[in-house]
């Protein structure tokens, strides 16, 4: 199965962690991105992710391959949700296994930073005041 995946159903982080299991790995670092109930001072009720699947899968795989080349890790996986999510839902999961913890921490951080900056996935936040808005990578609203 591909190392970068899009999911229309809830992500099972524990099951993904087991995919990383290896007798030669001494470290496993995972990151969970959760749906938060506020952004830039506004109350958020829910959100929806939209993706360009063909390009998102290709770019996600590229990021994981670059990460494996740059850091001394064994394996890296990432799953990103698409569709409608509620507060507290798991939106994105990243997991990295490595012989030692330094590389696992650094690679995990690198993957989530690159995913947020490069993969064609868009977040639409729905606010308590009834409005909604698409966001930029830094969390600020798109002008249009």
């Amino acid at each position: 199965m591909s190392a970068f995946r899009l999911a229309e159903i809830p992500i099972d982080g524990a099951a993904l962690g087991r995919e990383l299991a290896s007798a030669s790995a001494g470290a496993c670092v995972s990151f969970e991105g959760w749906v938060r109930n506020h952004n830039q001072g506004k109350a958020v009720q829910r959100l929806a992710y939209q993706a360009y699947p063909a390009l998102a899968l290709a770019e996600g795989e590229r990021i994981l391959a670059e990460t494996a080349a740059r850091f001394a890790i064994e394996q890296a996986l990432c799953v990103h949700r698409v569709g409608d999510l509620a507060i507290g839902d798991l939106a994105v999961w990243v997991g990295v296994s490595a012989a030692h913890r330094d590389a696992a921490f650094a690679a995990c951080r690198h993957v989530i930073d690159e995913i947020k900056a490069r993969v064609p996935i868009w977040k639409n936040e729905f606010y308590a005041d009834g409005f909604s808005g698409w966001l930029h990578p830094d969390g600020s609203p798109v002008a249009e």
Binding site: A91, K116, A117, V119, W122, P137
Partner: peptide
């Protein structure tokens, strides 16, 4: 062809 707005995944 797709014109892609600034992304905001994660």
């Amino acid at each position: 062809i797709a014109f892609l707005p600034p992304v905001s995944g994660g």
